[in-house]
């Protein structure tokens, strides 16, 4: 780790100012579960680290006029175990349960989970000067792309690592952030932008803006499912969240795109009608129709299709009749030795 100055201000406004005025760059630390890895690998080399531990009022989970209000410093474990979240936003509780290990859930926070940096192995190694680190290449294009994006990729092909964000996009949550210009509230989908906008970052926040609170409309039927290679601890290979709220179905996918991916195609396919096994399968197929896999991740297309179909059925409480006939994906133009 590069040496840094450590500050622990007592308000979010002061924390934001401490970031703004740092002469050699600054990073916010909440639970530190993502930041410490970046500091150790020297992907992040701030001259100042600003801790939120002394800022009061950022921790609780409460219900207020039809919404769950979750403080940015609420831990992932608190969200997973909260009876309120389990009852009123089950997809979020399921997503939180799937994060990391008990130790990581104990320290990892909601705000930190939403703002965590990608796990792309080229990004995480200082030796690869990738687009995200200001270099000129996305190494996944020619390299090993088995865990990379199949939707929304380019010029950088990371997948967004947050499970909570996927659930929150489906649940139509909004995020309150604090910065130099005061407070503003944005829909969670607007917290993220594709690498085509700016490959160096995943969020739309200004450097001195800090997530303060997440607000989740309560009561929609919802579900979250995640496919991972290792059950005890893993990021999603593919995740899906579905909410069936009063404004119609909302569908989000994780592990497939550089942002938590909202699928309007799937939402349109489901429409306002009650979910059936057939409509779930059709919606899942529609969601993956625009997929553009890289060299090594074509497997993610049928995988995401299956995970999404099951998630839709789980959200609607419809029994799973088993997989339908495989979707008609275009035959890959496969070259010898190319497939993973």
């Amino acid at each position: 780790m590069r040496a840094f100055e450590y500050l622990s201000p007592k308000t979010l406004e002061a924390a934001s100012a401490a970031v703004r005025t740092a002469p050699e760059g600054a990073r916010i630390i909440a639970g530190g579960q993502d930041l410490l890895g970046e500091l150790k690998e020297r992907i992040a080399t701030p001259g100042r680290v600003v801790s939120l531990k002394a800022v009061p009022g950022l921790r609780g989970i409460r219900e207020e006029s039809g919404s769950l209000r979750i403080g940015a410093l609420a831990t992932v474990q608190e969200v997973a175990e909260s009876p309120l979240v389990r009852e009123k936003a089950p997809a979020l509780a399921e997503a939180a349960t799937s994060v990391g290990t008990p130790q990581i859930r104990a320290l990892g926070t909601v705000g930190g989970n939403l703002c965590q940096r990608p796990r792309c192995w080229y990004y995480r190694l200082a030796d690869f000067p990738c687009l995200k680190k200001g270099g000129g290449t996305c190494f996944a294009v020619e390299g090993d792309s088995r865990y990379h994006a199949i939707l929304g990729g380019g010029p950088c092909h990371i997948v967004h690592p947050s499970d909570l964000a996927v659930a929150l996009v489906a649940l139509d949550a909004s995020v309150e952030v604090v910065g130099a210009k005061g407070r503003r509230t944005i829909p969670i989908a607007d917290l993220y932008a594709l690498p085509a906008v700016d490959a160096s970052r995943e969020t739309t926040l200004a450097p001195d803006e800090i997530v303060a609170e997440v607000s989740v409309p309560a009561g929609a039927r919802s579900a979250f499912r995640k496919f991972r290679e290792k059950l005890s601890l893993d990021f999603a290979v593919v995740a899906a969240a579905v909410a069936l709220g009063p404004k119609g179905p909302r569908v989000a996918l994780g592990g497939v795109a550089p942002v938590p991916w909202r699928s309007r195609e799937a939402e349109a396919a489901l429409g306002a009608k009650p979910v059936t096994a057939e409509s779930a399968a059709a919606a899942a197929t529609a969601a993956l129709a625009p997929a553009k896999p890289l060299k090594n991740n074509r497997y993610k297309v049928p995988l995401a299709c299956a995970v999404l179909r099951r998630t839709i059925l789980a959200a609607a409480g419809v029994a799973d009749p088993g997989p339908p006939a495989p979707p008609a994906t275009p035959a890959p133009t496969k070259k010898a030795g190319e497939d993973f």
């Binding site: 530190g32 579960q33 990581i104 104990a106 320290l107």
Partner: peptide
């Protein structure tokens, strides 16, 4: 040193955490 193995676990206020990912 990455949060994957748990061998650095200590208890903070009775709860297991990874001391390698804590300042």
């Amino acid at each position: 040193e990455l949060g994957e193995c748990g061998t650095c676990t200590v208890l903070v206020d009775g709860q297991p955490i990874l001391s390698c990912l804590a300042l």
